[in-house]
């Protein structure tokens, strides 16, 4: 799933606009593998496995393989459906300089949720008449 993030984010003009003040690296840990995400004004420039100890990014978000797998399902179970629910349930860890994460919380949450397929949910209830 991780390989789909860059394309899905960069094709989402609204999400890129939301992240237009974000230019930094951050780390995503999926099981035993760490990935460095390089962001330039809301666009993902690269997602690469971390190879050097001194490359850390501003902050890191880590969870086990099966946690991310559930998180990326169209309709995840409770405690897996959102980063903060995962933090609350002790299923994910946030470390490092979290200020840029908090300043752009809606951007980063949706970047990490980007691989999730669109769920088949009820259409909007409010009808436009005419």
């Amino acid at each position: 799933m991780i390989e789909t993030i860059m394309d899905r984010v960069n094709k989402n003009a609204g999400l890129v606009r939301r992240g237009r003040y974000v230019t930094l690296d951050f780390l995503v840990g999926i099981g035993d593998v760490d990935y460095i995400f390089r962001i330039d004004r809301g666009r993902i420039e690269s997602v690469t496995p971390r190879t050097k100890a001194m490359v850390t990014g501003h902050f890191s978000i880590r969870a086990a393989d099966d946690v991310w797998a559930e998180f990326w399902k169209p309709m995840p179970r409770r405690d897996y459906h959102d980063l903060f629910s995962m933090f609350a349930a002790g299923r994910a860890q946030l470390d490092g300089d979290v200020t840029p994460f908090m300043q752009n919380i809606r951007y980063f949450k949706d970047v990490l949720a980007a691989p999730r397929p669109v769920a088949n949910k009820p259409r909007p209830v409010t009808k436009k008449e005419g």
Binding site: P76, S85, I105, K121
Partner: peptide
């Protein structure tokens, strides 16, 4: 940190994934 953005960012996980996006 923008208070409205961060409040919504915190509580968005409190909305069930099944709920209509609207």
């Amino acid at each position: 940190v923008h208070g409205g953005e961060v409040a919504a960012g915190f509580v968005s996980g409190q909305v069930a994934p099944q709920s209509p996006d609207e």
